[in-house]
Write a protein that binds this DNA or RNA. Sequence first.
DNA 1: ATATATTCGGATATATTTGTCCGAAATAAA
DNA 2: TTTATTTCGGACAAATATATCCGAATATAT
Lengths: 145, 145
Amino acid sequence: MIFSKACEYGVRATLYIAHKSINQERATLKDIAVMIDSPVAFTAKILQQLTKQNIITSSKGPTGGFKFEGTKMKETKLLEVVETIDGKEMFTQCGLGLKECSENYPCPVHNEYKHIREGLLKMLQNTNIYEMAIGLENQETYLKR
Amino acid sequence: MIFSKACEYGVRATLYIAHKSINQERATLKDIAVMIDSPVAFTAKILQQLTKQNIITSSKGPTGGFKFEGTKMKETKLLEVVETIDGKEMFTQCGLGLKECSENYPCPVHNEYKHIREGLLKMLQNTNIYEMAIGLENQETYLKR
DNA sequence: ATATATTCGGATATATTTGTCCGAAATAAA
DNA sequence: TTTATTTCGGACAAATATATCCGAATATAT
């Protein structure tokens, strides 16, 4: 509920692609959708966003698909994926929806909410794609069910 | 973005009602909508939910409106308001949308996300309506703009 | 009694998110 | 060059969230 459905699919797809890239394999849209259990065409749109942001690369035709280029996977944080799909607003906006909420003009939950928001941001900044893909590799973590 | 728009309005309305109740005054729908800057009819629906949950009470007719009964305001935590409107799912669901995500079958963000979710839950459990209404009373915090 | 002010509840409208469809473009292999 | 396989992009559809409208029910005061 913190992340949109699109973002959930996006992160799962990204991690699956990373997992494949570690083994020098491309991931096709069909493959991805099956492996992360997501709607194919909707997933395609999300992958296009990630491709435009140069997080992943795509190629068409047979042998085409999605992958991480070079060391990109090790340099990319979860935050970049989330921001590409859900935007940065969730890390800046007021918990009660006020436009002008700030230290000088705080809403009633300003301080308490700020900590949550910052915790989330730090978590996403500190989590990198490669490390999570290794967890998948070792079957310590999963992307569907 | 963590809370729905309905929930944002609901919390703001609740705090305004609490603020009025401290001064032994009722809050009418119109009054509330103006003071928290929310759409009137939509706010009405949300207040009905809170009334059905017995968080606030309502009365019809002239002199009618919404208020906190007796010591209710001091006993009510922010969590109850949020759960009434947005449900409990946000405190239990997987960050990547998996149905069966758990300690035994974790998604790649399971542990990291768990801390965020629990932090949010604790924050909402520890925040009570009365204390926040006092902040409004003292003009240390605000409900609109 | 009547008029007035309020909440309640159902139907409807609008906006956004989620999801689908399909033809075009690109690429590789036969 | 043809065929097969893939992503791309635009239009469309469905589901959900947000918001409005209006008459009914209720309560108060005149």
